[in-house]
Design a protein around this nucleic acid. Structure first.
Lengths: 262, 262
DNA sequence: CAGTGGTCTAGACCACTGC
DNA sequence: CAGTGGTCTAGACCACTGT
């Protein structure tokens, strides 16, 4: 941390209409964006800030809370408040479910992670029969019973993605799709073996702030939104054969798509 | 608002480890999610909540602030705090820039909005020569000068999208692409007329919390993330002929894409 | 005008971290 | 142990809304 707070942060403008806590938040935000406070660096403590600005501690805390909800800093109890590093980003390409990527015999996530030199894991696997929600049911053509495959994906021990796949009961029953281990190539390989050659996927993307359970499952920092993906797989007969509902930490992903001009 | 606060919210659990402001936030969140507090309904005032729970006003405000940063409620100075309605959502399909949609002679945004019965507007139009950022430059093949087209899109008076298009100077100069009015079909129609028949687009999607200037430009409520789209247009010779950088209120959009299975 | 939320103070006690 | 952030109180004054 630099010696002079005034050099990093400046001073309050008493003639300004802008609330004091917003001015302090602005100073800190500017310092972060211009690199005067670098990634993982500790920002001045609440005590130092109250003394520097001559305000009450609650005012300083309010300013820091603004930055937390913007996802710029992370408070660690007993240690300090730190500038959040930009996490390594995974790029998801729109051809990631193409057949040629399945032929090595690995599921998309595992193959891609190993390629990138990370250690992939899948945990919290729960497979069970369920009655799907109205939304999922209508995407699968009005079906009433499905096999639901819940799981969580981790990279180097960090959870990055939580997903649920829904497969019509008549398709999944008696196949590895209803077992924990789906075998080489994952469920898309099994679908193709059982007479459901895949034609295309429809993918819907939303972004929002996480619910509290999602914050826990993905160990999300405050101020990080989530991507909510709903992907439907269609076979060559036009039947919807799987819906995958995925929540991802938005700061860890870039989604890349190819759009036709014709 | 119902007569009994206890029926809507319940009471504190003094044996719980959970902080009081979190318990209050949980009660309000549950009431919203289960419909005991409906869309646009006013939640109990700070005064009522302090009396009901027997806590200091700052504790109640802290709870409400949590809900604000989750995007669930909206505080209106002097009026009250209200349950945020889910705004009408625009669905952006991955074929939205297909040539056939351009042949009516309208730009994609205008045509689509009128189709949906909304009143579209485009304002804040600024067209000027710029030196592109490193990122934009490299997407356009290392070019040093571009025509930048800044504009903001509104539906029924509400800003929904702010975008900047970058076009290499040699392509745009002397054409309507460098003017305010690009003519029927927009810049993509002009590109095709000037020997740059379009082949495909690459689109990258990110989501994050907005910067303060984006909050202003899109009149974003607290707790609403933004989509950040960067779309590159390629002509049939493989040259990148335009990059469009767009910020959108994430609660107003669903992005829909088609992924190949081959 | 009464009622609402917005800002700010000056304390208190607690829990966690690292030396 | 000293220093950090986390929670909470009990006030104060202000600005905005609607009657």
């Amino acid at each position: 941390m630099p010696a002079s707070l005034a050099a990093v942060l400046g001073t309050l403008d008493p003639t300004s209409d802008r609330a004091v806590f917003r001015q302090i938040a602005d100073h800190l935000r500017d310092a972060i964006e211009e690199g005067r406070l670098g990634e993982n660096e500790q920002i001045p403590s609440e005590t130092m800030l109250t003394e520097h600005y001559g305000v009450a501690r609650m005012t300083v805390r309010h300013a820091i809370q603004v930055l937390q909800s913007e996802g710029l800093v992370l408070a660690e109890h007993g240690r300090g408040v730190f500038v959040r590093p930009r996490p390594p980003v995974r790029r998801l390409a729109s051809d990631r479910f193409a057949r040629r990527h399945r032929q090595q015999g690995k599921a998309a996530f595992i193959a891609e992670a190993e390629q990138a030199g990370s250690r992939p894991e899948v945990d919290s696997i729960v497979i069970r029969e369920e009655r799907p929600s109205r939304d999922i049911s209508s995407r699968l053509g009005g079906i009433r019973k499905v096999v639901a495959r819940h799981r969580r994906y981790l990279l180097d021990g960090q959870p990055v993605e939580a997903a649920v796949s829904y497969i019509p009961l008549d398709i999944a029953t008696g196949t590895p799709m209803a077992e924990t281990d789906t075998g080489p190539g994952g469920i898309y390989a099994r679908l193709e073996e059982t007479g459901h050659a895949l034609d295309h996927f429809d993918e819907e993307v939303r972004a929002r702030m996480p619910m509290p359970d999602e914050t826990r499952a993905l160990r999300l920092a405050p101020g990080v939104p989530v991507f909510h993906l709903v992907r439907t797989a269609y076979d060559t007969s036009g039947r919807a054969v799987e819906v995958c509902d995925t929540i991802m930490a938005a700061d860890a992903y870039v989604l890349a798509y190819n759009l036709p001009a014709r």
